[in-house]
Computed example of a mutant assay.
Amino acid sequence: MRAVLVVLAAEQRKVRLLLWGGAATPGDNSAFEWVTLNVMKDYKANDKSSTIERHQIRVAQDIIKHINGQEDGSIRSVDLFTHGGMQALYLTTAAPPTNAALRYVLHNSSLYRSRTRMIFNAAGWTKGSALVGEITFAKFATNAKIELHGCKTAGTESDDDNITADFSTQLAKAGKSASVVIGHADQANPNINGGGEKNNEQDYRHGQRVIFSKGKLIKVTKQKLHLVERDSEALAKKSQP
């Protein structure tokens, strides 16, 4: 009898991306970088199997490059450390002492939720700017997590008209049924203990954070630091129609 060789496909290794930068001032970029190191420690402690990649980003197209360059279904999480708002993650190629007007007209290289807002903010022709829709969401795992650490990326604690909700809608459209996206409903800052933190103590994971799945708000929390991913996944599954 002919022997049958059964080849078991190796389990795909998951990737966690920590992307930081895009600020005009060295101090802000330094804070972003230090916080990525602190978040990375938590991932290493809680996930022994995933590969962790940490990259500096200068323009929105860098975000697209690092995400779209991964294998389909491989991204377990993405943490984005940039300035933010409801309409965009704000990145600029300007450096001090560039005044604010020139910074946003000539050096606006942000990631926008819509082309209308991109054009309104004079970024439609700026090299490096991008749209959320340029991300290939097939790259994410079914239970992926994205966390946007910039200010007011979730708008308010009860609104779903923001860039955080948009990310979660796009994940759902790509079939990522247990995925969640976390954003801030307040002004994010690295002073997790109220001020005076050393570099290795800085962290944006505090304040009012909002969790979305499939474009819908599923939880508001003031819990500090690492949110247990399996808890968020359970909420996402419960929210399925």
Rank of each mutant, 00 (worst) to 15 (best):
K41N: 14
N29I: 14
Q223M: 05
K219S: 09
V220Y: 05
D42R: 09
L89P: 10
R76M: 08
Y104R: 15
F32E: 01
G175R: 00
M40T: 13
Q70P: 07
V228M: 00
S168H: 14
P96M: 06
V6G: 00
Y112E: 05
K14F: 11
N199W: 12
V180P: 07
R113F: 06
A172E: 08
S77D: 01
H107K: 01
R115L: 08
K238L: 14
Q170Y: 09
R113G: 09
K198C: 04
A94T: 12
G27N: 02
Q202V: 13
D28G: 10
H184A: 08
S49N: 12
P241A: 00
F81G: 05
A3Q: 13
N121R: 04
L106K: 15
K176R: 15
P97R: 07
K145T: 07
W20S: 05
N108R: 09
V78I: 09
K219P: 00
K176C: 11
L19A: 01
V35H: 14
T82G: 13
A31K: 02
P241C: 01
V210L: 03
R16Y: 01
K224Q: 12
R13A: 03
A174C: 06
A100Y: 06
H83W: 04
T156V: 04
S129V: 04
D28Y: 13
V210S: 03
Q70R: 11
I135Q: 12
F120K: 09
T136S: 08
Q12I: 00
C151Y: 12
I57A: 01
N191W: 11
W34M: 02
A60S: 05
I119L: 15
R58E: 06
A172Q: 03
H66Y: 14
A10K: 14
H149C: 02
G155R: 03
T164Q: 06
K152Q: 15
R205D: 10
V15F: 11
H149M: 01
N199F: 07
K48R: 15
A138D: 10
D159H: 05
H149F: 08
I163A: 04
A31L: 03
P96Y: 02
A94K: 07
Q170D: 02
K127N: 10
R54L: 14
L80N: 04
H226R: 12
Y112C: 10
G69R: 06
G215L: 00
A236W: 14
E233F: 09
A24Q: 14
V132E: 09
N108M: 05
S213H: 10
R117K: 12
S158Y: 12
V78F: 02
L17D: 04
T51F: 11
A188P: 04
S232G: 00
H107L: 13
A174E: 08
L89R: 04
G155Y: 10
S110G: 10
T136R: 09
A165F: 15
I57F: 04
L225W: 15
A174G: 03
T93D: 13
R117A: 14
Y43N: 05
V7S: 12
A174M: 08
E201Y: 05
T221L: 11
R103P: 01
T164N: 12
D186M: 07
I192C: 06
V105Y: 02
K237L: 14
V59F: 10
N200T: 15
A94Y: 09
